[in-house]
Amino acid sequence: MTRDDAFLQFLLRMGDNTLVLGHRVSEWCGHAPVLEEDIALANTALDLIGQTQMWLALAGEVQGDGKSADDLAFLRDAWDFRNALLVEVPNGDFGRTLMRQFLFDSWHKLMLERLKGSSDERVAAIAEKAVKEVTYHVERSRDTVIGLGDGTEESHARMQEALDYLWPYVGELFASDAVDAEMVAAGIAPDPASLRADYDAILTEVMAEATLSIPKSGFAHKGGRDGRMHTEHLGHLLTSMQWLQRAYPGARW
């Protein structure tokens, strides 16, 4: 694997995470529990899609064959997607959506903070811009997880169920492989495993305040960030997301 191959994989991982999660969050449009949440969800999705445009545009540039961010988003099949499995699981109820958001945002913010110091200026610039948005995302998802965890008996039970369901998808965010080793060697990105201690500290504090128990199991589903085996859900998501581009090839929208 050349450095550019690894760099491309890294950029796809970043861009596919925000693309797929942005898509999931946008599915809430018009169906949220209160109007303020409709606004917040649309806003979060909008930020994530904006970040996708930056990551995937850079991925296209690194790939060097003239592909645009749209080509990468709309014309790759599931096996070429490099997002973590966590972001492709269905929304479930509002509790699961916000729990997933918090689990992702907490990782995302730690990652972007480190990427601000990337040896690649383009990566550092994207991180600089994105981290401002993600700081708001995590503030909101954290408050919601705490509010609902420590709310009524029902909201507590639903949030615990959400955490139990999502927990096996958290480990993949911190898995390291040859791509990561290459990124560390180039000073482009940190080893994901090195973010885990800070992440665990945040989670311990927030879940305690939310009166929720972090599952004991250390088992992690993997296969998203290396594309080896996505969930069954991704194909359905891409079917709707890519439909127009696939049905009318070459049209400009």
Partner: peptide
């Protein structure tokens, strides 16, 4: 919202999200 998930480009999806957010 019926078309947000099927918007044909990232730009169109972003514009539509911004618009729907304004409406709310």
């Amino acid at each position: 919202g019926n078309w947000i998930t099927r918007a044909p480009t990232l730009e169109r999806k972003a514009i539509l999200l911004a618009k729907v957010q304004d409406e709310a």
